[in-house]
Design a protein around this nucleic acid. Structure first.
Lengths: 337, 337
DNA sequence: ACCGGAAATGCATTCGTATACAATCCGTTG
DNA sequence: CAACGGATTGTATACGAATGCATTTCCGGT
């Protein structure tokens, strides 16, 4: 009595159907040279055994796995979530699959990408993380494209990227705040190292400076609620108090609203304008009505997938910037209607 | 000039190192019989070529892929997210990897699981979804364990499961509400088909009934904000108005708070008590202070991983229930301090 | 010097599928 | 009827690493 559990192989099916293993393979290969009658015979036999081609073996032969590796940086943001969601839908429609890693530390990313290469993934997508240049080079050398999502790479040579218009969105926000009559600006940045944060910050700041205003007061919130609570407390305690805060993402903006409202007793909009970035769900809730800038994650992922699927090797990787749209809400409206 | 891009193989390394391919394999296999000097020679050669063992080939031989398939139901909830996060951390520590699918429709789940089987995954984890019994049977037959997270299966024979104590949590909530003096109860369910929702519902309702109270008024919110907004409007418009609402998850509870506060002008806690389930981040925000029940997702995932890693085939799959803890906050406090 | 045995190594085969190539089959046409 | 061409089908091999088995090496013991 064999204890071994194993799925039926093409040979088993071939024996039942009375054909060769090659015929079985062809039956499952669209466009292969095989008679309709034979194909059906094979299908019937396969059905009776519950046979499905082993993708591992197929990958070994074809040299490509049908798997796209995704490395997600911490913290797992809602943006990453919806990106992953959209990606999964589009890729599985194309018959590809997703191998996911979450990166805790920054050094872990490289390790994960190494693992991905060992699976001979067809491409690597970096969500909210970056990877060392040496590793990127190796991917390039092995013909595995790396695409960076919302993180335009410095050494742009080895990456492709799809990025939201962080600078533009931040500039829109600055214009709007200025037009609403706010004058003393505060800024809660994400990480100093994050290019997303830097772009949002510089887009905001440079517009203000170009209008003859001083640099805004600045604190760092690390993209997290806790950090933003601290940052908002510091900024709002300054004299004179800033009358508008721009936060590098919505999560921090919501935290800032809570601090302003519940700790400083300010009325949002009238006493202090607060704007965020990303347009997460909570931004539209009646308790917040947060002014923000929406990046079209779905569109961006569509571009990513297009890049992944058109395997045009040897072309220098492209960089795409996608525009979003500005969404003014009551959190930056000076006078309530 | 070859245009072919391909990673170096064990043969290449063997040639450089002046050993056989088998030796290369052994060098990378912990505990294999190989001299230290040889191993180092191999490592040096591998290093110089950038060689890494091809996991696809390894999987083919060993009959196991080191991949765990995860199917995530829509909508991608924060709970799924943190579960995925924890899972990724634990599994990659164990050298396993995660192939992710998101299931749009309910029928899609089966298709995804079929795909997973074709990759010869070592196990399948269902997050927030269920799969047909026939497919479950097939997985069982092929020796691929299926574990269901937070969805105890009806036909428990083919699944293992790790579930939060939904009934118990709901009962705690009912006790608390009663003790706070609420008497006219409303309930916003998730899906009628979802066992999680049914457990939370029945835990709540049956306790009330056991205390001689009538069945609560009931609406279905489909676990989504939009649905919950509608449900809350209907419930709060009834005469007499319920003085407490229990919602099958926090998202819906937050929606209910918004409706009660901004549309009905009620003071949360005093006029109407509102409780949720899951303890998502927003529940603790000062604008909500939502009473809820927290399930220890990390602990649950640890159990899942333990199940996945101890390949004890042929044992009837086990079902585990994990307790969480009740978190009373101001949203169900009749008298503010 | 010799032998025994453990350790190290190489050889050949295996996993399951795809595919180049050779061998058929079939219907058509001259 | 024979030759021909296209469509099918089978045979054999390859993909890259792991492993059973046979062989060699090495070391200590006598």
């Amino acid at each position: 009595m064999s204890n071994r559990i194993s799925a039926p192989s093409a040979h088993d099916v071939a024996r039942i159907a009375g054909v060769s293993q090659a015929a079985v393979s062809r039956a499952f290969t669209p466009g292969a040279s095989i008679a309709k009658a034979t194909r059906e015979k094979v299908f019937r036999a396969a059905e009776s055994l519950g046979y499905r081609p082993n993708l591992i073996a197929r990958s070994l032969i074809k040299g490509e796995s049908g798997i796209v590796g995704v490395v997600i940086g911490n913290p797992m943001s809602p943006t990453s979530m919806s990106a992953l969601d959209a990606l999964s839908a589009l890729l599985s429609a194309a018959g590809k699959h997703i191998l996911v890693f979450t990166a805790d530390g920054s050094s872990a990313v490289d390790v994960h990408v190494e693992d991905l290469l060992r699976y001979r993934v067809d491409a690597v997508l970096l969500l909210t993380t970056i990877v060392s240049t040496t590793l990127a080079e190796r991917c390039q050398a092995e013909g595995v494209p790396i695409i960076s999502f919302n993180r335009p790479p410095r050494g742009s040579k080895f990456f492709a990227s799809v990025t939201g218009d962080n600078r533009g969105g931040a500039k829109c926000t600055a214009e709007h705040l200025l037009q609403q009559g706010y004058r003393r600006f505060g800024l809660i940045a994400g990480y100093s190292e994050s290019s997303t944060s830097r772009d949002r910050e510089s887009g905001f700041t440079s517009f203000l400076v170009s209008q003859g205003l001083p640099q805004p007061e600045r604190e760092v919130g690390h993209y997290k609620r806790e950090g933003a609570l601290l940052a908002a407390r510091k900024l709002l305690a300054r004299k004179p108090r800033p009358d508008a805060l721009f936060c590098a993402n919505d999560h921090m903006a919501l935290a800032a609203i809570d601090v302003a409202r519940y700790e400083f007793g300010l009325e949002i909009g009238r006493d202090v304008g607060i704007a965020g970035f990303d347009n997460i769900d909570e931004a539209s809730w009646p308790g917040y009505e947060l002014t923000t800038y929406s990046l079209p994650v779905e569109t961006m992922i569509e571009k990513v997938v297009a890049m992944l699927l058109t395997r045009t090797p040897r072309k220098s990787p492209g960089h795409t910037t996608v525009e979003g749209h500005f969404i003014p809400r009551n959190s930056t409206r000076r006078t309530r209607k």
